[in-house]
């Protein structure tokens, strides 16, 4: 029989010690986080429509096709986070244009406000906020440029709010992976190969039809 008392020793030698994940802010428990060897840090994985704010030194990452992500942090306290969204696309067609355009904008406003408000609620100061903007790629040649629409919205929103964009990598034809560390402001943007286009488009299309089928108005939680 195998001596049982050896097992704990074996386990501790075989498995490298991975620290516990930092505490999550209320409301973000559903966001999946995992340990990343490259950065020796936890990182939260955002899907379209999600956002995440942290007061700890951990990463937030996502993959973007035509969606856009704003990375916002208080450069003094280090609290910050990322969102991932796009505007509902039903706007451009017909006589309903003005109505649906404002509905689309309202959706974008929600996405930006949620992120900023939670940062402020956790000690961020508006005057300390720095913003980085990513995504809005045109990854399917035969589509209307919905990426550009998202970029234009985000830039307009930030300009109206008086928030300065300190770095951006937007537009072009590539999907991207963005890894952001709010505590330091460090960000890594990687262009992804076209091999990944269809999977990303499928994910974004599912998200788009979800937000377009929901009524927009009042205080409905769109995230």
């Amino acid at each position: 029989m195998r001596p049982k008392n050896l097992r704990p020793i074996n386990t501790s030698m075989a498995i490298p010690t991975i620290p516990r994940p930092p505490l999550v802010l209320p409301g973000f428990e559903h966001v999946r986080r995992n340990w990343n060897q490259t950065y020796e840090s936890y990182a939260a994985r955002l899907l379209p429509g999600e956002y995440y704010v942290t007061i700890h030194d951990e990463g937030v990452y996502t993959t973007l096709g035509s969606c856009i992500s704003a990375c916002i942090r208080d450069r003094v306290s280090g609290v910050g986070g990322m969102n991932h969204f796009m505007l509902p696309a039903s706007a451009d067609a017909d006589g309903w244009k003005s109505t649906s355009l404002s509905a689309a904008t309202r959706y974008g406003n929600f996405a930006m406000e949620h992120l900023i408000n939670v940062i402020l609620k956790n000690g961020g100061q508006r005057q300390n906020l720095e913003v980085k903007l990513f995504g809005g790629g045109r990854i399917l040649a035969n589509m209307t440029d919905i990426g550009m629409r998202n970029i234009t919205f985000a830039r307009d929103y930030l300009a109206t709010e008086g928030l300065r964009v300190t770095a951006e990598d937007v537009g072009d034809i590539y999907p991207r992976m963005v890894v952001y560390f709010p505590a330091t402001g460090k960000v890594r943007v990687k262009r992804l190969r076209s091999l990944h286009n269809n999977v990303i488009v499928e994910e974004e299309t599912r998200y788009l039809s979800a937000i377009e089928s929901k009524p927009v108005g009042g205080d409905i939680e769109l995230f």
Binding site: N36, A43, V199
Partner: peptide, 14 residues
């Protein structure tokens, strides 16, 4: 195949 592609997108570790 799709599961494999999703794993690549899910991994920050390249």
């Amino acid at each position: 195949a799709k599961e494999a592609l999703l794993r690549v997108l899910d991994s920050v570790d390249d």
